[in-house]
């Protein structure tokens, strides 16, 4: 199943977990879990807009407009993921 999810990501213009769940006839929850597994195992790399800022938001004058608050996520298939898809 994980390879199928990876293939769906590869073929998509953008990621919609609902779309993938519908196409694979699985629940969205399971697809979410599959994403976590693929990220954990290094097949996917997530860029969730968290900018790894070391400063404390409470004292930061820019906390209000910080990118950490923007709900946006991007995902990349890693070389390991590409190798799996090529198999």
């Amino acid at each position: 199943m994980l390879k199928k999810v990876l293939k769906q990501i590869k073929d998509a213009d953008y990621i919609s977990k609902t779309n993938i769940a519908t196409k694979l006839n699985k629940s969205v929850g399971l697809i979410e879990d599959a994403f976590s597994q693929l990220i954990r195992m290094g097949y996917l790399q997530v860029n969730d807009n968290k900018n790894n800022c070391n400063s404390n938001c409470n004292g930061c004058p820019f906390a209000n407009s910080c990118a950490n608050q923007l709900a946006s996520k991007a995902i990349r298939i890693t070389e390991k993921g590409e190798r799996l898809l090529a198999k």
Partner: peptide
């Protein structure tokens, strides 16, 4: 993010 302020906009490039 830069539409609000360029400082956090530039910090957001860390991603």
């Amino acid at each position: 993010v830069g539409f609000g302020c360029n400082v956090p906009g530039i910090m957001a490039t860390r991603t």
